[in-house]
Design a protein around this nucleic acid. Structure first.
Lengths: 196, 196
DNA sequence: CAGCTGACAGATATCAATATCTGTCAGCTG
DNA sequence: CAGCTGACAGATATTGATATCTGTCAGCTG
């Protein structure tokens, strides 16, 4: 009895896993659930992902990559001046994370569990994001608007100094009144620090 | 059978509670344990603290206050110029937290549980610290070394931007090689942003 | 014969019965 | 009689017996 006659792909498994995680939450989502959602035996899932942990890591990576990709456009937009590009990029990062946390708190909590499990995927994500920041900073140095010795180190510092506005650990504070002003105060100070 | 003939005070209970927390950890430390350590019945403990939660909050406050007090000296030291005072204060805060986390990881984990339980005490602690920072910033403005519109808002921004180097949630990263440089990069950027 | 199934062993989670703890208070004691 | 005790009821945690899940693999099927 094949309910879906399509062939089973890693992609289809990832989609089904996201759905199961959304429905059951991270604690109760099992490989058997994923297999049932796809109308196959759980043995078939193990044909595409060696372990449950590997499956969850792949889901985590996909989720993180979606954010990175949405920011890459701003980082690469050479039509804006670097100072404004930097401000826009940081604001867009904040806004993206805040929307994810605010729009569907349960799903966000699920992904917080997943990111805790998968330090490796998170590290890659952070490397990716600081890479984008480095490109903006370097553009600013080349344009003569930023005075900075080591663009990569400065990019890391910028990322870390704004952690309160993108690190999921702070998500509760993103809905408090005044966060916008706090964000502006921190970013303002940092932009001034980049030199004229 | 009175093992200690001294009268029972809130202070003695707090000391015993710290010891029990150190020994048993936050999950297993009970009021009965505290009473046993003092050689009294647990009813006597409830004569000084209305609930177990109130007792744990008092222990938490004491612990946080010890850090605040150690920094107050630097904040008040008018003999150093504000720029250096600010750098020293932030470095001392980082160093204090890092030592607490590194010297006795288990005890630190215990206090992380306690601070999670007692958001109120933590909020007071943060108000206290940003107050100290505000005084330094204001001194800098008065001395003409900082160009800042709202010292209190700037103090909050400085505190938040350096969160990675004092927020217990980041304690794992405080032992990584290169944190010192990261700290210097962030603080350097912020100090530059305060204006000449 | 490539891809899938389902029975299986060991690991992990669930659940209900039992034990311990929290918070109260009437009464003891020095 | 101020301060403490210890028995108690209800709430919370622990335990161990049971059920479910993970990961494997020999063999089925189209």
């Amino acid at each position: 009895m094949p309910p879906t006659s399509e062939i089973l792909t890693a992609e289809r498994i990832l989609e089904a896993t996201e759905e199961v995680l959304r429905r059951h939450g991270p604690a109760k989502a099992t490989v058997v659930d994923v297999a049932r959602a796809l109308g196959v035996s759980h043995g078939s899932v193990y044909r595409h992902f060696r372990t449950k942990a590997a499956l969850r890591e792949a889901v985590t990576k996909r989720w993180l990559d979606r954010t990175s990709e949405s920011l890459a456009g701003i980082a690469a937009d050479a039509s804006r001046d670097p100072r404004q590009r930097l401000g826009d990029w940081l604001a867009a990062l904040f806004e993206a994370k805040r929307r994810k946390a605010g729009d569907d708190p349960e799903l966000f909590a699920t992904y917080m569990v997943l990111t805790d499990e998968n330090g490796g995927a998170v590290a890659e994500h952070i490397t990716d994001l600081t890479g984008q920041l480095t490109r903006i900073v370097r553009a600013g140095v080349d344009a003569g608007v930023f005075t900075v010795a080591d663009p990569a180190a400065t990019a890391r510092a910028l990322f870390q100094a704004t952690g309160r506005f993108h690190d999921p650990g702070y998500h509760r504070e993103w809905e408090l009144p005044g966060v916008e002003d706090e964000f502006d105060a921190v970013v303002g100070l940092l932009l001034r620090g980049l030199g004229v």
